[in-house]
């Protein structure tokens, strides 16, 4: 999982999760992205690079802020460009599923 994908996952997670659960969610998302069909994973990687470029520059210049990233994700989630919307939906779905399934009494 690329740095920007890790940051997106971290931003999308509930802030009240403990460190172990956060690590388990990161691990689940990484594993699922890794096992995706190659052509889908390639598309996700391309979007990660395209959408994460600005955040990457901010990181290099010490101005990266996760709240700002979350605001961007909210905007992308409502994008009229379907692949952009689906990018956030995919990662949000994986995070949501994992953090709710890893919670006690999930069934």
């Amino acid at each position: 999982m690329l740095w920007f994908e890790q940051e997106v996952v971290a931003a999308l997670m509930r802030p009240d999760l403990d460190a172990d659960t956060r690590a388990a969610v990161q691990s689940y998302v990484a594993g699922t992205l890794h096992s995706m069909p190659e052509h889908l994973r390639a598309g996700v990687l391309a979007e990660t690079i395209a959408l994460g470029g600005r955040s990457w520059i901010e990181r290099r210049t010490g101005r990266f802020d996760r709240d700002r990233l979350l605001a961007r994700l909210t905007g992308w989630k409502h994008s009229s460009i379907d692949p952009v919307r689906q990018y956030v939906r995919l990662l949000e779905s994986l995070v949501l599923f994992a953090e709710n399934e890893l919670a006690p009494g999930s069934s």
Binding site: Y28, G31, S35, M36, P37, L40, D82, L94, A98, E101
Partner: peptide, 26 residues
């Protein structure tokens, strides 16, 4: 494994359940 649980998805689903048919919409 519990049916429909996260461990089941990881162990038994192709691609961990993350497959999609491309199209509009996917």
């Amino acid at each position: 494994l519990e049916p429909f649980s996260l461990p089941e998805m990881v162990a038994k689903y192709r691609h961990g359940g993350s497959c999609a048919a491309l199209g509009r919409p996917a």
